[in-house]
């Protein structure tokens, strides 16, 4: 299926965020189009993770506006973001360590489940039916990510690369419209990176999921993303297609280390 990039689905306008005296983001604007893979790059501490946190409401910016699917907001709220179909992974894996892979993925579908605790306590009937229905969906994702063999393993016992994959699975379990990935390939070996790349492209391709991606590996970014935003010291210094960005003098300066 040929991907077709659609209308603007997320529009960030003049976002500024600071912690005490530290300015993490300064007046940043960019947009994300439906079905595209949008990369955010920049040196460490540039504010990339903070940007994702603003998008799904973990951080609240002091200034700016967030427009998601036509809805204007001053800031996001984590629950609203999840309900609107934004899912994500974290730079430092944030899985539920005491739970199995299966349970982690099932938890990812929490918002789609309707039964209340009383029905759960009684189990037979609606709760069981619902559980089964969602289990099927989760098993599809398990197949897709090729993690059948570890479905009953507590995630704390898995190696790093697999944990990253499970975390992607947990995000996918929510069947998100938009997926925010914070350095999904950091710390992986080449083979694992290739797998992860393939999964990201497949998700984007098969499910049409819009992807916002933070990644340090320039090769990967240039390969798979449609457009790239470059941040440095909390400011946007470039925005455009990989080729445009690659040849931007300011970006080259930032990366070749005229500072730091």
């Amino acid at each position: 299926m040929a991907r077709k990039i659609g209308e603007v689905i997320l529009d960030l306008r003049h976002i500024s965020l600071s912690f005490g005296g530290v300015k993490a983001l300064t007046d940043i604007s960019f947009d994300v189009r439906e079905h595209e893979i949008r990369a955010i790059i920049g040196p460490n501490g540039a504010g990339k993770s903070s940007m994702l946190n603003v998008i799904n409401g973990v951080y609240r910016p002091q200034q700016g506006e967030i427009i998601f699917q036509g809805e204007h907001r001053k800031d996001m709220d984590t629950h609203a973001a999840a309900a609107a179909g934004i899912a994500r992974t974290f730079q430092n894996i944030a899985l539920f360590k005491g739970m199995t892979v299966l349970d982690n993925l099932m938890t990812g579908r929490n918002l789609k489940m309707r039964c209340n605790f009383l029905q759960h306590a009684l189990w037979w009937g609606p709760a069981q039916r619902e559980e089964l229905e969602h289990r099927r969906k989760v098993e599809e994702i398990i197949d897709f990510l090729e993690i059948e063999h570890i479905r009953k393993t507590p995630v704390g016992r898995l190696p790093y690369g697999l944990q990253k994959r499970v975390e992607l699975g947990r995000a996918l379990a929510a069947e998100p419209k938009m997926l925010l990935l914070d350095e999904p390939m950091a710390g992986m070996n080449v083979e694992e990176k290739q797998d992860m790349c393939r999964f990201i492209l497949d998700v984007n391709d098969q499910f049409g999921t819009t992807i916002v991606l933070i990644e340090h590996d320039m090769g990967v970014v240039m390969d798979i993303s449609d457009r790239v935003v470059v941040l440095d010291y909390g400011r946007k210094i470039a925005d455009g297609t990989p080729d445009e960005v690659k040849n931007d003098p300011e970006v080259i300066a930032a990366y070749l280390g005229t500072q730091h």
Binding site: F19, Y59, A94
Partner: peptide, 8 residues
């Protein structure tokens, strides 16, 4: 204490 926002 200082106001603290969990880092993720």
């Amino acid at each position: 204490g200082e106001k603290h926002i969990d880092r993720v």
